[in-house]
């Protein structure tokens, strides 16, 4: 486990561009070089054609809430100061088969619904007792 766990390791090559993009305000995912379907997780073989080469592309940041849970019990000590929080899967507008794991913010728990429209919001992630912060893509209800 790297020192800043449970913050992401922004230097780990397969996911480095996700966090670099977030710091610039862009939602970045990988696209298959061969068949052009979006591939997630990055650097895993394309599940459409099996190809292994991908390039990073910028997507709209819009999607829908595929599923979620309100985490009330701190399963690891670093979560103690943030419970309760909402963690879930966001199906991307460009290809809903791609589900980003994220936290849902600015939404009352009673308003959470599967398939509700969401939009990305880039915010710094911090944990008690862990040095530093990392800007990550979080999601909030879409403001129409």
């Amino acid at each position: 486990m790297h020192a800043a766990f449970p913050l992401p390791d922004v230097d780990w090559p397969p996911t480095r561009e996700l966090f670099a993009g977030a710091a610039r305000g862009e939602l970045r995912v990988t696209r298959c070089n061969l068949c052009a379907t979006l591939v997630w997780y990055p650097s895993t073989p394309c599940r459409t054609c099996g190809a292994e080469r991908q390039e990073w592309v910028t997507v709209s940041g819009r999607g829908t809430l595929f599923s979620w849970s309100v985490v009330r019990f701190p399963w690891i000590p670093q979560f103690k100061s943030i419970v309760p929080f909402v963690t879930g899967l966001v199906a991307l507008e460009e290809d809903p088969r791609v589900r980003l794991v994220s936290r849902i913010v600015d939404c009352p728990i009673d308003d959470l619904r599967c398939d509700m429209p969401l939009e990305v919001d880039f915010r710094p992630l911090r944990f008690d007792g862990v040095d530093g912060e990392v800007v990550v893509p979080l999601f909030r209800p879409e403001r129409r």
């Binding site: 992401p8 390791d9 397969p14 996911t15 794991v101 936290r103 990550v136």
Partner: peptide, 18 residues
Amino acid sequence: DLYKQNLEVPFGWFPQPV
């Protein structure tokens, strides 16, 4: 698992109950 460490755990999508 490094994918989970970077794409799931930071967002609180961890461990199995979640």
